[in-house]
Computed example of a mutant assay.
Amino acid sequence: MVAPNPNNPQPLKYAMLGVDESTPLEKLEKYTGTVGWKYLAPHYLSGVLYFVDPELKLAEVGYAFSENHKEQVEAWLKAGDLVKIGDLHAEQWAKADNEFEALVVSPFVLCRPI
């Protein structure tokens, strides 16, 4: 093996370790996880935290956000299936020791207690 020469650096070689042929929806499902209120609180404070009704799949709602399906998101908001977290929810959740299913679809965070 030849020692590296600091006067003549070699370019870095990049390679993909595998090809992810998942659909965008499948990728969002992979990034759905369980967190506590401590993780969600800063997102509530910045106004980007949303509650997702348990009847909806979190990844499907995230997909609608990521693909800018504005009409669908507005319909969920109007129906109450998607709710921007307000002070009442935040106060209750801060007092409880709940865990949440959550998904970040930057800049938004979608969640629901589990």
Rank of each mutant, 00 (worst) to 15 (best):
V2N: 12
V2D: 10
V2S: 13
V2C: 01
A3K: 08
A3F: 05
P4F: 07
N5E: 03
P6G: 03
P6V: 04
N7Y: 14
N7T: 08
N8A: 13
N8Q: 14
P9Q: 05
P11K: 13
P11G: 09
L12I: 13
Y14K: 12
M16R: 15
M16I: 10
L17R: 12
G18K: 09
D20F: 03
E21F: 12
E21M: 11
E21V: 12
S22Q: 10
S22F: 01
S22N: 10
T23G: 07
P24V: 02
L25Y: 08
E26M: 11
E26K: 14
K27V: 09
K27Y: 06
K30M: 09
K30A: 08
K30W: 05
Y31P: 03
T32G: 01
G33F: 06
T34P: 00
T34D: 09
G36F: 01
W37E: 10
W37C: 07
K38S: 11
Y39M: 14
Y39G: 05
L40Y: 03
A41W: 02
A41P: 00
P42V: 01
L45T: 03
L45H: 09
Y50F: 15
Y50V: 01
Y50C: 06
F51M: 11
F51Q: 11
F51D: 04
V52W: 13
V52A: 12
V52N: 13
D53H: 14
D53I: 03
D53L: 06
D53V: 00
E55D: 14
E55Y: 03
L56C: 06
L56P: 02
L56D: 01
K57W: 00
L58A: 03
A59R: 04
A59F: 00
V61N: 11
V61K: 12
V61H: 12
V61F: 08
G62K: 04
G62S: 00
G62I: 02
Y63K: 05
Y63F: 08
A64L: 02
F65M: 07
F65V: 00
S66R: 14
S66G: 09
E67N: 10
E67L: 08
N68W: 09
E74G: 04
W76G: 00
W76I: 01
L77N: 13
K78D: 07
K78M: 07
G80R: 08
D81C: 06
D81M: 14
L82Q: 04
L82E: 06
V83I: 10
K84N: 09
K84Y: 01
G86A: 08
G86P: 05
D87L: 15
D87W: 11
L88K: 15
A90F: 02
A90M: 04
E91F: 09
E91Q: 13
W93M: 15
W93A: 09
A94V: 02
A94R: 14
A94D: 10
K95L: 06
K95H: 04
K95D: 02
A96I: 00
A96E: 10
A96W: 02
D97L: 03
N98G: 03
N98W: 12
F100G: 06
E101L: 12
A102S: 14
A102V: 01
A102N: 08
L103F: 10
V104N: 09
V104D: 12
V105R: 10
V105T: 11
V105L: 10
S106A: 13
S106V: 10
P107V: 05
P107Y: 03
P107M: 08
F108S: 07
F108W: 13
V109A: 11
L110P: 00
L110I: 03
C111P: 11
I114E: 14
I114R: 15
